[in-house]
Design a protein around this nucleic acid. Structure first.
Lengths: 260, 260
DNA sequence: CGCAATCTTGAGAATGCTCAAAAGTGGTGG
DNA sequence: CCACCACTTTTGAGCATTCTCAAGATTGCG
């Protein structure tokens, strides 16, 4: 495997302290306790994961995917295209994230799911899960539901981010969010994390031009809040970053299990 | 009841052609067929509806609401406040819309639910619904799920709207969306609909300043796409509006029942 | 080494913002 | 019925932020 095909993951951060487990299990484990059987089932389905290069479509716009899509390594996203060629990313799919696909809709996803970096992703057939693991009192069911609700909260937070924050604040907020999310699956150190996106991807995420993102990044570097070089983001001053972005991680709900 | 307390609803449009039914039943009916029992159950719970003035909080930020919130008349919204006092609306709750509240989360809503105009709203206790009506093959269950997924698609569409459209396009897109959503519950005519929001509300929705919203509205009027006067929006050129906004109603999923 | 993609820089222009004041609107009470 | 009040809409002017276009520098890969 050449370097360009390498998939972001445990590579740089090394085996993570929380246990070298599957990112999906690790993430869902934040939302509810999973039984050994449930974990085995997930592992089994993840074994079928495929590798995708960067810029690959996992699900095309309007297509009806055949199961739950799980990203295990790399950064993917959901995005929509406008007629003039502009695009907008509406969500990141990080390792452990899934793109559930409720059959109640009977078809059609309204945005495309694409990789931003090389990825490893699996599809879990929905019926199999329903048959074997989902029941009213299943931890897996609870975890999946929580995961979905969290995705929705995140989306809402993105509306706020794009709708009423300045360029620098938007980027700072995104970095904070990514740090928390990646930490939850053992892919971030306190000091930073691998960040495979281009400035253009970033621009399309926060609703700015890439030139302006570049200048905003320079501002963040000048203030010594971050360093961003060769696909690695170093967080130099977490508190200042949180402060600048008015970041409150509550919406990510990684506060360990539903505390009620 | 004085005019200022009057609640938007069937008032101006008169009894609607689709039947003078409850907005909730009407909306959910687009997503799945509801049995007579299910309809009766919903009607029963809606009978407890309370009236709220404009600018009232239905659920405060961080609060844990005690059931599913249903708006029956008027415009409400979900919104978040920033430290500097700025706010961002993340969703409109129109008649028939609901703010489901999954107990899996065990508490805390991350934004506040407030009325934008005088409203009538009810709360449906979740357990009652579960006990009496929700089952794997219940139409109501399907409808509620669809409704939730539609809300999520709408949110995604808002990210796109705010993230990569110009001021005029954003407003046009919002008007198109509102027209389709209100039509679905019988609150819009082909020519337009009652629109109780201020230009400031609009601004906070699409991420612009109110002054700029005012000027963008003037542009839309100048081009004879709309008229907006005394809380009523008249659509003068629907096709041009749709064209300008690149509006595609598919995400609202009012295409009649899950067509598979 | 050379190519392609990405990042950086500059300069001018457009879009949208802020502040402030004036004009319009509708409801309330005298 | 009128006057007043609060709120909303409209207008103007200057400014800040962000965008576009275009060129040059850097990076990493083949």
């Amino acid at each position: 495997m050449t370097a360009s095909n390498a998939v972001a993951g445990e590579s740089r951060s090394g085996p993570s302290p929380g246990g070298p487990r599957n990112a999906l299990i690790r993430r869902l484990g934040h939302f509810a306790a999973l039984s050994t059987d449930e974990q085995a089932l997930l592992l089994h389905h993840c074994a079928q994961a495929r590798t995708y290069p960067a810029q690959a479509d996992l699900v095309r716009e309007g297509e009806s995917p055949d199961g739950i899509l799980v990203v295990l390594e790399g950064f993917a996203c959901r995005q929509q295209y406008r007629n003039n060629g502009a695009r907008q990313i509406t969500a990141y799919l990080l390792p452990g994230d899934l793109c559930d696909w409720d059959p109640a809709l009977g078809g059609r996803l309204d945005d495309a799911v694409s990789t931003l970096s090389p990825c490893r992703a699996a599809r879990i057939p929905r019926e199999a899960l329903l048959r074997e693991a989902l029941g009213p009192h299943s931890g897996l069911e609870r975890a999946l539901r929580m995961s979905h609700l969290t995705d929705e909260s995140t989306l809402r937070e993105w509306v706020v981010n794009i709708g009423c924050r300045s360029a620098v604040e938007r980027i700072a907020h995104l970095f904070c969010e990514l740090h928390v999310r990646l930490t939850a699956v053992g892919l971030a150190a306190e000091t930073g994390f691998d960040f495979p996106l281009t400035q253009n991807d970033l621009a399309v995420t926060v609703g700015l031009s890439d030139v302006h993102v570049n200048r905003s990044l320079q501002a963040l570097r000048r203030e010594r809040l971050i360093a961003l070089k060769s696909r690695h983001l170093t967080i130099l001053d977490w508190d200042a970053l949180v402060d600048l972005a008015e970041f409150n991680p509550a919406y990510l709900r990684f506060g360990r299990f539903p505390v009620s």
